[in-house]
Write a protein that binds this DNA or RNA. Structure first.
Length: 197
DNA sequence: CCAACGATGGGT
DNA sequence: CCCATCGTTGGA
């Protein structure tokens, strides 16, 4: 079952941890594509030097960040890469969780098409083991920026009730974040082979 | 106007 | 490991 608004409107660190093991589903026009979330990063807003919204910065592209929890914040990186974030907390608290890696579940054929890679080498994990790879595989781009994850196109469901064994590490590639760059706000399922490098 | 940035992919 | 590539963003 789909997770509801109240799941997202909580402390970002809790949401980031609880998202591990959940299933991200995109009902795209070509068909359903989904994967289990195995790696996340929390971005804690105005007091987090790694966050877009650090010190209250607010440009048009980050409007969704300022929405209440449960909206999608999708931005294009420098170049052709997209990142998919889940907005957390109440409105005007610009915090989010970046989804960094998935374990592919449904729609493998579509994923291989979108990624234009060849699975015959058994490199299944190469489909979704990175924030931009998973966007490509699930056909997520900025046209979905600001979409409500409580609706039916792009949403998240509870995974198995297995208590996932997780661990926390510093976040990836945020050298600009000074004293915040070593905060252990990256979460991953221990030993999972689909975690990014 | 334009340098800078991160993720990826491929080469040595 | 190193390096090229992408082009939007945000600061001048």
């Amino acid at each position: 079952m789909k997770v509801e608004r109240s799941f997202y409107e909580r402390e970002t660190l809790i949401v980031a941890k609880d998202l591990l093991g959940c299933i991200l589903v995109h009902k795209s026009k070509d068909g359903e594509i989904s994967g289990r979330i195995v790696e996340t990063e929390a971005y804690l807003g105005i007091n987090d030097k790694a966050a877009h919204s650090y010190s209250g910065r607010h440009t048009p592209r980050m409007d969704p960040l300022y929405q209440k929890g449960g909206f999608a914040y999708i931005y294009q990186l420098h170049g052709y890469n997209y990142c998919f974030n889940v907005v957390t907390e109440k409105a005007e608290v610009p915090q989010a969780v970046l989804i960094r890696a998935l374990e592919p579940l449904v729609g493998l054929e579509l994923m291989t098409q979108h990624r234009s890679i060849d699975l015959s080498l058994g490199k299944l994990k190469n489909l979704t083991n990175g924030p931009s790879k998973l966007c490509q595989a699930l056909d997520i781009d900025t046209s979905l920026n600001g979409i409500d994850l409580c609706e039916d196109e792009l949403f998240i469901t509870k995974g198995d009730d297995l208590k996932t064994q997780f661990m926390a590490t510093p976040r990836i590639n945020i050298n600009y974040a000074e004293e915040d760059k070593d905060k252990p706000w990256r979460f991953l399922i221990k030993g999972n082979e689909f975690v990014s490098h």
